[in-house]
């Protein structure tokens, strides 16, 4: 592993960046370091934000930025193997790919010159890793999409993408937890609630979770709600 880059993004937040790339190995390292910090928090520790190849640590004035930098640099050298072996949840998510919900499916189909059935079978053929949660509460960035499903983002983002929309862009797939503007291509919708403040974790998915998609019919989708 490369020597990580450590820098402040705020007077009370420091990022340790292992690599500016999307790789499972780097992401595992990020999660392992997060577990180490959370299970043995230093004085003044507030929270961690894992991303693809970096971990950002927020802390209070009870601790100096210099000592947090030192600690991160030391810890990253000796991320424990037990943490590295920590696996996320394995989740099978129901998705309805009906074109009334997966509104961009016809466009993706003609753009890739694949039938809609082929797209659905490709999208459900692999296990996706949740690399990080970001953009809006509960939005999972998942990869890696089968190469043949690579599509660009929309030229002009849609003003309203419905809640639960399952979308693809580049090498990634994600799920919109709320109705928001967005630029990814929507190919289906899950009836599951991705962000719910009445549950203890609030986000249905967490960094490190492993996700597969299970196609369901429109009838089955409607029965969920």
């Amino acid at each position: 592993m490369l020597i990580p880059r450590i820098y402040n993004i705020h007077d009370q937040a420091i990022t340790i960046e292992f690599a500016a790339e999307i790789s499972e190995e780097t992401n595992l390292h990020v999660i392992a370091l997060q577990h180490d910090l959370e299970s043995n928090p230093f004085k003044g520790f507030i929270e961690c934000v894992p991303a693809y190849g970096s971990l950002t640590v927020y802390f209070s004035e009870q601790v100096s930025a210099a000592s947090v930098r030192l600690l991160l640099s030391d810890l990253s050298d000796q991320v424990s193997n037990t943490s590295l072996a920590t696996k996320g949840k394995q989740i099978s998510m129901p998705v309805c790919y009906d074109t009334s919900l997966g509104i961009d499916l016809p466009w993706v189909s003609s753009h890739l010159d694949l039938s809609m059935e082929e797209i659905i079978s490709l999208h459900t053929s692999v296990v996706y890793r949740v690399y990080m949660i970001g953009f809006i509460p509960g939005f999972p960035y998942m990869g890696t999409l089968p190469e043949r499903l690579g599509v660009p983002r929309k030229q002009t983002p849609s003003l309203k993408i419905p809640m639960g929309s399952v979308a693809i862009a580049g090498k990634q797939t994600g799920i919109y937890p709320a109705e928001v503007p967005g630029g990814w291509q929507v190919i289906g919708r899950t009836p599951l609630k991705m962000f719910d403040t009445t549950t203890s974790a609030c986000s249905f998915l967490n960094t490190g979770d492993l996700v597969t998609f299970m196609p369901i019919t429109l009838d089955a989708f409607n029965q969920y709600s």
């Binding site: 990022t15 500016a20 991303a51 693809y52 950002t56 927020y58 990080m132 970001g134």
Partner: peptide, 11 residues
């Protein structure tokens, strides 16, 4: 192309 990472107020 950047890979997403944490941001916060003041950035």
């Amino acid at each position: 192309e950047m890979v997403s990472t944490a941001v916060t107020a003041g950035i």
